[in-house]
Design a protein around this nucleic acid. Structure first.
Lengths: 219, 219
DNA sequence: GGCTGTGAACCGCTTCACAGCT
DNA sequence: AGCTGTGAAGCGGTTCACAGCC
């Protein structure tokens, strides 16, 4: 979960996290108009949910008609800040980092990675798609000079906290941490989202096992 | 978010999703005893949250003292079903799949991958760590014969829905889908968790951008 | 005194139901 | 008639505050 800083809007975090899903549907849409029902079906949310989410930011639709696909797309991109060319740095050029980089390179309009860093001499200097891996030593200057606001961490668990500290010090705005170890410090300076894929997998195990024995105690 | 089937327990999903985090802390713990405060600090949750989560399953702690590390570890592993050797199949042996596989192979006690599938002839037959990639053609027989209950999807967007359908048909219990396209069908037969890394990244963009112009309309 | 276990209050998000525009 | 926008109700989860045991 995202830990929030002091002055956030009164817009539910869950709403923000659904917006990219709506956006993707809109971008894959051929028709020029759509409705909350259609958007709901394609994203897995209810139509009321879709309407409420969009209405937080104003009245984008037309009653009796629906939403204009390209217009709504632009609105959402603006809300998310994707029209401002948000720059990100990827720290850790392993398999996971490479996968993420490839995803964002293939997509049309997205968060743009402005740097890929690693600490291994074997990896530094090599290319991943169109990006050349740079030395993590230069993290601070790269973040500052290229005005990078977003960091994605795909480093080993032991390195995560230290790298996060350096990123925070360099003035980054938010960190998406995939390392199998949560980042707990500096949450007043930086927005941190910990996303541990192995923990997700363990949680899934619960839902495929029988639980006859561990009934919740009747209170 | 996980969409739940009919007969789930009255235990919050969010509780389940925190248990693996507690477990990891316990496994990295040297002391033989711990407290809800310590567990909270190391996971980023409040101590009340920790206590409430654990209490759903019984009284594991001792008042005035705390929790026994190894005992609580066993309890959580039992609750999650990790003591039953949950078997998973990885579909899609790209970078993301490889990264996930490596994580789970390095970890001590985890969900075990019993098969890795791909459709590319170049990849089928090659090894990832100790696993040999098998042909996705044999998906159904592999799932059935090896009694696999969990699937992790790291395939391209276009393939996701179709593979999910085959997995559901083969009687899998749950699917963790990383493809950049949500799985929407069959949610009564199979538990589906869609986890789209690029959408996560886009959502983060919102939190690093200024929003002077799009104030929530005063109601 | 210290730390767990838990009802109760609180809070935020989702769903409902309908008013309002086209 | 159709579909959006929205107050109100409902619901699930978190936080509070304290009773209970060591």
């Amino acid at each position: 979960m995202v830990q929030r800083r002091a002055n956030m809007r009164r817009i539910p975090e869950s709403t923000i996290r659904r917006l990219p899903a709506y956006l993707r549907v809109l971008e894959n849409q051929k028709e020029t108009r759509t409705t909350s029902v259609a958007l709901g079906e394609r994203t897995g949310y209810s139509s009321e949910q879709v309407r409420k989410d969009l209405a937080y930011f104003g009245a984008f639709g037309t009653r009796g008609v629906g939403y204009d696909v390209s217009q709504l797309g632009h609105q959402i991109r603006h809300i998310l800040g994707l029209d401002k060319n948000v720059k990100a740095v990827l720290v850790g050029a392993g398999h996971l980092g490479t996968a993420l980089l490839r995803y964002t390179q293939s997509g049309v309009s997205d968060v743009q990675f402005a740097a890929v860093l690693d600490n291994s001499p074997q990896v530094v200097g090599s290319a991943i798609g169109s990006m050349v891996v740079e030395d993590i030593q230069h993290l601070e200057s790269i973040v500052t000079e290229r005005k990078i606001r977003l960091a994605v961490l795909t480093v080993p668990a032991e390195a995560a906290e230290k790298v996060a500290e350096r990123l925070a010090e360099a003035g980054i705005g938010a960190i998406l941490n995939f390392a199998p170890s949560p980042i707990l410090t500096d949450q007043d300076r930086v927005l941190v989202q910990n996303l541990d894929l192995t923990l997700e997998l363990q949680a899934m195990a619960y839902f495929v096992t029988e639980h006859d024995d561990l009934e919740s105690p009747v209170s």
